[in-house]
């Protein structure tokens, strides 16, 4: 019996530790919302989070994040209730290290390839360099001119949500990949959450689609609608935000108590949402006209 398949609670408690550098996949596509909710539920704190177009606000607003590495985030406390709350309730003043999107991708790519930094023709001359020690400019040993360098990021743990994965953790995601490939392959420990655990033969008949192999994966969690309310290609479209806004104390308390602390897991949360959006709300966002590609031919 393979020990990798487990529930979300176990996957998170075994692999996400206080003080971890955490990679959350899914830039605007298939972000692992269910896993993030579980990390909040377990109140794993002092995290450093890499944020590329994903929702890190639940973690921030509950005071669990000390530092964010990001290309695009609301960093102004006056305009962000989660940041205000982190400071007022939890005495956490969130630090930011700002890059351009490609800077984060390069940092993760460097981590994935095992080198300490990567050179780039971007970022140089930008004021981001003044406030982020992870971006420098050096003399190029080959051309003589200045070249930017971005320091590698090696996450302690990465979470990736995919359409399908086998019990060994061979994970396949399609559609846009944002920084998924670089980020998950850079991560020391890996949690895969998947819409469906499939037979290994499904993976083996289309192995080019595997973005991380089983031997690199620590935990596999089957979690349908694990990226809700975001979209996931081939599965479902964007859904409505569940209990309304996250700005302001009342909205936040409502959200956090209903969606996270008030339920034992993601399935119970989705069940509870039926009371808000109707029994068929998940059916409604499922794709209606699946489009199949030509099969990839392998064989002897």
């Amino acid at each position: 019996m393979d020990g990798k398949v487990m529930n979300m609670k176990e996957a998170v408690s075994r692999n996400v530790k206080p003080g971890d550098l955490l990679f959350i996949s899914g830039a605007q596509h298939g972000t692992p919302s269910a896993a993030v909710a579980e990390i909040v539920r377990q109140k794993i704190n002092h995290l450093t989070v890499i944020s590329v177009l994903n929702n890190t606000m639940p973690l921030i607003g509950e005071g669990l994040v000390d530092k964010v590495l990001t290309g695009y985030s609301m960093t102004d406390e006056r305009r962000s209730y989660p940041l205000q709350r982190a400071r007022e309730r939890f005495n956490v003043k969130v630090e930011f290290r700002e890059y351009s999107h490609f800077g984060i991708a390069l940092a993760l790519f460097a981590g994935y390839t095992g080198v300490p930094f990567l050179p780039t023709k971007g970022h140089v001359g930008s004021d981001m360099m003044k406030y982020n020690e992870n971006i420098q400019s050096i003399n190029c040993p080959f051309t003589g001119g200045q070249i930017g360098v971005i320091r590698a990021v090696v996450p302690d743990v990465g979470v990736l949500h995919v359409q399908r994965c086998d019990a060994e953790g061979n994970a396949q995601k399609w559609g846009t990949l944002g920084v998924d490939f670089e980020g998950i392959n850079a991560s020391k420990r890996v949690i895969i959450t998947t819409e469906k655990i499939v037979d290994s033969s499904v993976i083996q008949r289309d192995p080019n689609r595997t973005i991380i192999p089983g031997f690199r994966v620590n935990a596999v969690v089957e979690q349908p609608f694990g990226a809700y309310p975001g979209h996931l290609v081939g599965c479902y479209n964007d859904g409505p935000m569940s209990f309304g806004g996250m700005q302001g104390e009342e909205g936040w308390e409502n959200y956090i108590n209903n969606e996270i602390y008030g339920v034992k897991d993601w399935n119970e949360y989705l069940e509870k949402l039926k009371g808000v959006h109707g029994d068929d709300f998940l059916e409604k966002i499922k794709i209606k006209k699946p489009m199949l590609s030509e099969p990839i031919i392998t064989g002897m």
Partner: peptide
Amino acid sequence: PIHRWMGSGGANDLMSF
């Protein structure tokens, strides 16, 4: 700051490249 925006996103990449 007096005002803050969300940061570069892909803008620095785009203008650089």
